[in-house]
């Protein structure tokens, strides 16, 4: 048996964790530092009774798929931004918000 599996939470440890979580929750505007990134990504309804945007006859013949998917190359915009100074530390809790 793996040693790690024997690690357990005592009743006291669970109570301490829940108690401290409730204390954090009761604080006004808690963890503002972690939660300040807000982004307005609103979802809209996707069912319409109209033609799709950009629907024209001419557009159709131009955009018809020619069966050469292997020639496709993704733009890969994020590759250019990669570096080794990551902000993705395991220690922190980062929050990102998509607002309605």
């Amino acid at each position: 048996m793996n040693n790690k599996t024997t690690r357990t939470f005592s009743a006291a440890a669970l109570a301490l964790a829940l108690g401290s979580a409730l204390t954090v929750a009761a604080l006004p505007a808690q963890a503002a530092g972690d939660m300040e990134k807000c982004f307005g990504v609103a979802l809209k309804g996707q069912n319409d009774c109209a033609a799709g945007a950009g629907t024209t006859c001419a557009g159709t013949s131009k955009t018809d798929y020619q069966g050469d998917a292997w020639k496709l190359v993704p733009k890969g915009t994020c590759d250019k931004t990669a570096s080794h100074t990551s902000s993705t530390g395991f220690g922190q809790l980062a929050a990102f918000t998509a607002k309605s």
């Binding site: 319409d48 009774c49 109209a50 033609a51 945007a53 629907t55 024209t56 006859c57």
Partner: peptide
Amino acid sequence: RLLIDSHG
């Protein structure tokens, strides 16, 4: 002439 019901 070809009209398309685009609601646009």
